[in-house]
Design a protein around this nucleic acid. Structure first.
Lengths: 112, 112
DNA sequence: TTTAATGGTTTAAAATAACGAACGGATAGG
DNA sequence: CCTATCCGTTCGTTATTTTAAACCATTAAA
């Protein structure tokens, strides 16, 4: 009962995140950002254009979505914007919670 | 290095699942199916039409996507199709693995 | 066999998302 | 001040997704 209401909220809460990370282009961007452990100062939009093979406006568009999903953030330096992953695990944790609850409810149904 | 290659594959592997569960209508369908713990014999398409407020072809379409993502399956009884959640946790587990690895790589970057 | 119920598929329309060309704003360097 | 660099935004186009009307197949019931 309350379980399903909770699930409903958790689905809603994780929707943006799910949509954000479901897209192939955005996955490429995230992987590139995960990769920059050497540089560790963020990647410029121009760099990500190279990674994705898309135009700058397209990349800019995806970065906006990732930014709104709190997955990335950026820092200005002159005219340059350095994008990096917010090292927040909040969205990840919330999604994990959702997945756990789904598993839980399924297991509960399973046994009867 | 190999970490990122692995992540890339895991992203690809979970893509269908992410896209499937990111949609609001499909979330409604899944919640309805999770709810049928009393009946526990599956829900008919007509039932799901009521739940979602959409037309039958639309529901049928979403069920197809959920079916291809191995999230639901169905059983025929005469002219009736009873849809239920495959109680497979494989896709869920794979996604959890992905999330764990992301967290891992992020933590690794964090410390330097 | 005829009629009703159930539901998948095809088709076409509508809504949404993704995309690049062109533009403009801000900053750095000369 | 002028020029170049970097990047977001606007706009119109294209691609993809979502949707329902119409159609067809299957099965059950009369």
């Amino acid at each position: 009962m309350a379980n399903l209401t909770r699930l409903k909220h958790e689905f809603t809460r994780s929707s943006d995140f799910l949509i954000a990370i479901g897209d192939q282009t955005r996955q490429k961007i995230m992987i590139a950002l995960l990769d920059e452990k050497v540089i560790h100062q963020g990647l410029q939009v121009t760099d990500l254009v190279g990674v994705t093979g898309l135009s700058r406006p397209a990349v800019s568009h995806h970065l906006k979505i990732l930014k709104e999903a709190k997955i990335v953030d950026y820092r200005r330096e002159g005219t340059k914007n350095f994008y990096y992953l917010t090292h927040q695990t909040k969205a990840i944790d919330q999604l994990k919670t959702l997945l756990d609850h789904i598993t839980e409810v399924m297991a509960c149904n399973q046994q009867r």
